[in-house]
């Protein structure tokens, strides 16, 4: 088990003929992920070929899903067209749309999120590294890699990782793998102020997944999503949880790279979030180098086996 995606999940790639989408479609194929379709309007009928794989390209998400049974899309469409690409996944009834695209106008996301309300499609992102459910092959291959994460840093196992930041996720995963601790699923939810799946949504899924024994939650300044997740953890989660918040030294009112990483008031500072983590019994990583160790401490205290 894992959350959201597993080794049998069939994925399609929107924007597979663009350089960014093509590169990562290749890496996912190399990882052993079932990339069964590509979507580029106007290029339907052509094929995306790589290392003996011949992936059919379709004009629309609906066509691709019907023809190949794909249930998940990885979106690599440029910002002006990305919101439309997400909506297309929703209307085609996919289970999951993962928007990798960085720089989508916030107003577009506000409209798309409203349009997806009550629909079955889950959105992860935008501006995110995507998801990885590691496989059992060499260097975790054979798993499901959607997005831009390096696959080889993973190892199949029982720790769930959720984060707003890409490279900080890799940092946590690498620390775990280096210590011989594998992951169930790693989810990058993205650094934008309006996104689909929240920290809390992922925490709930990890809590329900019997294969996930411990959780690392990585957040940053801006918004209050981590605080809400912490409150829910306090009331509902029995599994060991470690947390880290980036941006303790960020000045107020300045956007720190991510559109969502900006301190507006007293509620969305790193200090406020760390306090909420501590109040919820989450083991706080003192530095980013301490993320895996923090989870090991939390697991030890609860006598839970992580590997």
């Amino acid at each position: 088990m894992a959350i959201f995606v597993h080794e049998k999940t069939k994925i399609l790639v929107q924007g597979i003929t663009g350089s960014f989408g093509a590169r990562h479609a290749q890496l996912s194929l190399d990882y052993g992920t079932l990339v069964v379709a590509g979507v580029t309007p106007g290029k339907g009928g052509q094929f995306f070929e790589h290392n003996g794989h011949k992936v059919p390209i379709f004009n629309s998400v609906a066509d691709a899903a019907v023809a190949t049974g794909a249930t998940v899309s990885a979106i690599f469409v440029p910002p002006p067209f990305a919101a439309d690409a997400i909506l297309e996944c929703s209307d085609a009834g996919l289970d999951l749309a993962v928007a990798i695209t960085e720089g989508i106008p916030i107003r577009d996301m506000v409209r798309v999120k409203r349009a997806m309300q009550g629909k079955k499609t889950r959105l992860v992102g935008p501006n995110c590294p995507g998801l990885v459910t590691p496989g059992t092959g060499p260097k975790s291959s054979g798993g499901c890699r959607i997005g831009i994460s390096p696959g080889y840093i993973h190892q199949k196992g029982h720790v769930g990782v959720v984060s707003r930041s890409g490279t900080l996720t890799y940092e946590a995963v690498w620390q775990l793998t280096s210590k011989g601790i594998g992951q169930s699923t790693c989810v990058g939810i993205g650094g934008d102020p309006v996104n689909g799946t929240s920290h809390l949504d992922v925490i709930k899924a990890f809590n329900d997944d019997p294969d996930t024994h411990g959780i690392i939650m990585i957040g940053e300044i801006g918004g209050t999503a981590e605080v809400e997740a912490a409150k829910w953890i306090k009331a509902n989660v029995k599994k060991p949880v470690a947390g880290f918040i980036a941006g303790a030294t960020a000045p107020a009112g300045r956007r720190m790279g991510h559109a969502g990483a900006i301190v507006g008031g007293t509620e969305d500072t790193a200090a406020a979030k760390i306090a909420a983590f501590k109040a919820a019994g989450i083991e706080v990583a003192v530095t980013p180098s301490d993320m895996a160790d923090a989870l090991i401490r939390a697991a030890k205290a609860q006598n839970v086996k992580l590997s």
Binding site: S163, T167, L168, A246, A248, M256, G257, H258, A261
Partner: peptide, 10 residues
């Protein structure tokens, strides 16, 4: 990466 950059400052 923005998150890693922030935590490097931290």
């Amino acid at each position: 990466g923005a998150g890693l950059a922030m935590s490097t400052m931290d």
